[in-house]
Design a protein around this nucleic acid. Structure first.
Lengths: 210, 210
DNA sequence: TACATTAACGACCGATCGTTTGTATAGTTG
DNA sequence: CAACTATACAAACGATCGGTCGTTAATGTA
């Protein structure tokens, strides 16, 4: 199982295809992502995919994996460089908004585009997407709990409640920025969480004023 | 152009088909809603649709119209029975949550399922969906502004900001309840808006405590 | 009664879907 | 070098897609 040149070349095109697939899926969803169009976008042939994946579902599963790793690298990891507590919590929110604002994915958010498709369709794909989202929300909850343990959030805070609010205010940027408000929703989402955290934090100077 | 029996019969099946279409689209989206499956669900034939609609896009446009009216009847109208101001604002939020919680549509929310599909695809359909959503958000903003005019919200409130928060906290119930938290997200969404309004309202007794 | 219109249908069209098959080729191993 | 393996392809498959066509039965109008 040594990685010789063949596998290396294969891995390279595999990664290139997955990157394209995640980008396309963030726009058209996992169903709209047809093998024909993906082939055209990557400059390969439809049948070439089956050298890398047994069927379309395997490709979709790997795309979910790829999107998860991308999210971790571009959102979670940068936020972890902020000091633990309420500052890291807000850094996490800002990192997400930066991800959206910079247009890393042409459709904004891979998981948002995919949720509506899989949530009513049981199967491995749905399970994998649901797990990724549960891990993400659990991660937010951990940051909230840590901020509380550090005394940086009022004791009256309920962890799951605040975590829901932070996630909701961030995620909805995708909808609002694309169909209605445009970039203004980024400002609204940032301020909503910032003011909420400042109101709950005994030492608001930990957070920017505006 | 008098409405004789033929047209009446046509209208009846037209409405029945549209109701099915909106329900199916709330689950599978407007693309997933294929004419073949819609025909099977309504017990008619594919080709029968073309007696009512020129092509699929016209059916989709009418489905958007139907979903808009349903939303108005089931959410907006009931909320308007509450006294203007902060109580009506919260009644609007609760009416939405009731709509989701009761499972009026099998997929939860028609517009949520459709947004991700149309937002990157210019055309009449996208325009119509975007208009419906802009009207809804503008309606929320009007209620916020009215509550402020009545002195039921602190003067520091920015209308668009608060409206964004209320809408985001409500809409995200669809995602969270279907892939992660389940019904708990309804509780989170309700409490988030309730506490936010109570904190901003000079007379919190206008709103329930919990 | 004679005629027009409508709802609804079955059969079929070209296009595209995911997938299979067979093949050519480049890289690795004995 | 020969034998083998992984990559990639063109061609074709059955299924399904949105849509057309011609027809039938029912309902209206003159």
């Amino acid at each position: 199982m040594t990685q010789d040149g063949r596998r290396l070349r294969g891995l390279r095109s595999r990664e290139a295809i997955l990157e394209q697939a995640v980008g396309l899926a963030s726009v058209e969803g996992l169903d709209g992502l047809s093998l024909g169009r993906l082939a055209a976008a990557t400059g390969t042939s439809k049948s070439g995919f089956f050298a890398h994946w047994r069927d379309k579902e395997q490709l979709q599963l790997d795309a979910v994996e790829w999107a998860s790793r991308q999210w971790t690298e571009r959102v979670v990891v940068p936020a972890m460089q902020a000091p633990a507590g309420v500052r890291r919590l807000f850094a996490l929110h800002e990192a997400r908004l930066r991800f959206y604002g910079e247009g890393v994915l042409p459709g904004g958010c891979f998981f948002f585009a995919v949720q509506a498709e899989v949530d009513d369709r049981p199967g491995t794909l749905r399970d994998r997407v649901a797990r990724a989202m549960r891990e993400w929300q659990e991660f937010i909850r951990r940051q909230v709990a840590e901020a509380m343990a550090l005394g940086e959030l009022a004791e009256s805070v309920e962890v799951a409640q605040l975590a829901y609010e932070i996630d909701a205010l961030g995620e909805m940027v995708i909808i609002h920025s694309r169909l209605a408000d445009g970039p203004a929703s980024l400002v609204h989402a940032r301020r909503a969480v910032l003011q909420r955290l400042r109101a709950l934090c005994p030492d608001p100077t930990l957070l920017p004023e505006d």
